[in-house]
């Protein structure tokens, strides 16, 4: 009783003046944040701001830019969708079933976080090229993955893979099976239990994972450029287009496209925060 009373008390009275170092640590944090992140990021908006309205839209409306945006958003959405489905499946089998090698495989799921993107790109193109382990099987059926748009999709599935698994897994672990058991003893089939109990509970986490994977895929550069043909209008993603403009010292053009990408990223960051808040609220109620 005494403990439960003491807790809200220490919370409502923050020991602001007892511990030292508040000014120093917050001051350093803000200074470092401004110098390394905020001021450099503002340059994109400042540089794009020097363009007139018509100049800006001429860059964005260019067929090459439009094609790059369509490809990047399309491939990212498709890859995130595939990851949402298979990520849920992987999280399910890793949490609910036991089989030999489960622990190693569980650790391996984080590989895309730990493996440098250039390595991922060069390895995926080796495996999915027409003479690679998988490409060799697909090539006789006229399916070509590496150096086509399908290759971009494969790279984006790779880098987004851990996001859905790692957001769904903790929810699945904390999920008590008593509700499922109650439903089963009342005559519900496994399919009904999945559709009516499990899916609604896991949905916010799956959606969060989908958004995280999508946001990550939008900006991805390293793994994609190794496996794509990088041809404008056909295999060029937005980050590669920005890179090309920078190589030609077309900084204004690069900044205009970067502004659109940054705004999309910030919107997704906001959405992810909202989803996590919703997810916590839902689980708190359940």
């Amino acid at each position: 009783m005494a403990v439960s009373l003491a807790q809200p008390q220490t919370r409502s009275l923050p020991p602001r003046r007892i511990l030292p170092g508040f000014g120093l640590s917050l001051g350093y944090t803000l200074l470092y944040l401004c110098l390394l992140v905020l001021i450099p990021l503002s340059t994109v908006f400042i540089r794009a701001g020097t363009l007139s309205h018509t100049q800006f839209w001429a860059i964005i409306d260019d067929p090459r830019t439009v094609a790059a945006f369509k490809l990047t958003f399309g491939a990212s959405a498709l890859a995130a969708l595939v990851n949402a489905f298979f990520g849920l499946l992987v999280a399910w089998t890793l949490t609910r079933y036991s089989f030999p090698g489960r622990r190693v495989i569980d650790g391996l799921v984080d590989l895309p976080f730990a493996l440098p993107t250039a390595v991922a790109g060069i390895c995926l193109s080796a495996v999915y090229a027409d003479n690679g382990w998988v490409g060799r099987v697909l090539a006789p059926h006229h399916i070509h993955v590496a150096y086509t748009q399908a290759g971009i999709f494969v790279a984006l599935v790779f880098i987004g893979l851990p996001f859905v698994v790692r957001t769904v897994q903790p929810v699945l672990q904390d999920l008590e099976t008593d509700v499922e058991e109650a439903a089963a003893s009342l005559g519900a089939t496994r399919g009904q239990i999945f559709a009516r109990i499990l899916l609604p509970t896991l949905f916010p986490a799956v959606l969060t994972g989908f958004t995280l994977a999508f946001a990550r895929a939008l900006g991805e550069y390293g793994s994609v450029i190794f496996i794509s043909n990088n041809i404008p209008l056909r295999g060029e993603i937005v980050p590669k287009l920005i890179m090309d403009k920078l190589d030609q010292f077309d900084y204004a053009g690069a900044a205009a496209i970067a502004v659109i990408m940054l705004l999309a990223s910030f919107a997704l960051l906001l959405l992810i925060n909202l989803l996590q808040w919703w997810s916590r609220k839902r689980l708190g109620m359940a």
């Binding site: 803000l30 450099p40 994109v44 920005i242 920078l246 900044a255």
Partner: peptide
């Protein structure tokens, strides 16, 4: 402040390099 600290995760690596070229 927490959101701002997360910001570099949301930025495409190419844009992360580009901002220092612009600056």
């Amino acid at each position: 402040l927490l959101t701002l600290i997360d910001l570099p995760f949301a930025v495409s690596p190419v844009i992360a390099g580009m901002i220092f070229v612009l600056l």
